[in-house]
Design a protein around this nucleic acid. Sequence first.
DNA 1: CTACATACGTAATAACGTAACGCCGGGGCG
DNA 2: CGCCCCGGCGTTACGTTATTACGTATGTAG
Lengths: 135, 135
Amino acid sequence: MSVETHPELTKNQALVFGSLSDAGGPLTAYAILDLLRDSGFRAPLQVYRALDKLVEYGMVHRLESLNAFVACSHKGCSSHGTAAFAICEKCGEVSEFTPVKAMTLLQDWTRSEGFQLSRTTIELRGTCRQCAVPN
Amino acid sequence: MSVETHPELTKNQALVFGSLSDAGGPLTAYAILDLLRDSGFRAPLQVYRALDKLVEYGMVHRLESLNAFVACSHKGCSSHGTAAFAICEKCGEVSEFTPVKAMTLLQDWTRSEGFQLSRTTIELRGTCRQCAVPN
DNA sequence: CTACATACGTAATAACGTAACGCCGGGGCG
DNA sequence: CGCCCCGGCGTTACGTTATTACGTATGTAG
């Protein structure tokens, strides 16, 4: 449970993580950069470096199909390796969930193939309940 | 071959699909552009337009985590919606497979959430059997 | 002190993707 | 036939996303 399995965040990392947490949804690296200009950020690399670490610590996920980043929903994020995302193409809302059984099946496949799994990306695109027209 | 559930390819579409088939692996749009310069291609848009159609026809898949494209392994590609990919980070090889059960579980989740699924991305990163050090 | 590792700042550039415009050829249809 | 529409195409320009390269500062182990 380990609320703190990773080191203290540096100033830049804390700023980037704060932006993502406040946003409550995905942000691109350049959107984060714009948000943090007032805090002294001047170049993309400052954002990307912080994001790399935050992803490494499991506090932030990258959404490959969006080229964006989102703060992990779980406070201490224990389930870092097993997250999946449902992305609404109408409103942009992103739901994180943890499809344990599906992950297990995929791991079974990798084991049978001798493939050493390091990272799994599962992203579902579609329309969320709110945006699905009810009538 | 070619069950042909889709229209005849245009010249550009055929050239792009040919590049991807010949490559036998993923190519970025710009790599395709470079391959096709001798065939008269001059601008990215020519590639992207063809790729859009080929993806729509189910003949080509986009690898989100690579920003690249691959020809579908299945000749007529019937299983367009249910493909997953294992990507070796050492040699770059990409294996396409069809995790029917895992897909079903994910669909179960979407149904329970009222999420209308339109597209699923599953990409596994790791090391393939050949590249895994045996000793 | 030196050596090494980590974070940081900045500039420049590479890689990926799209908007906007106009042209052309083939159908449908009055 | 003349007209319109539409899909594909070519080109220019631009917008967005990500990285390379180089230099500085700080901390810690030997």
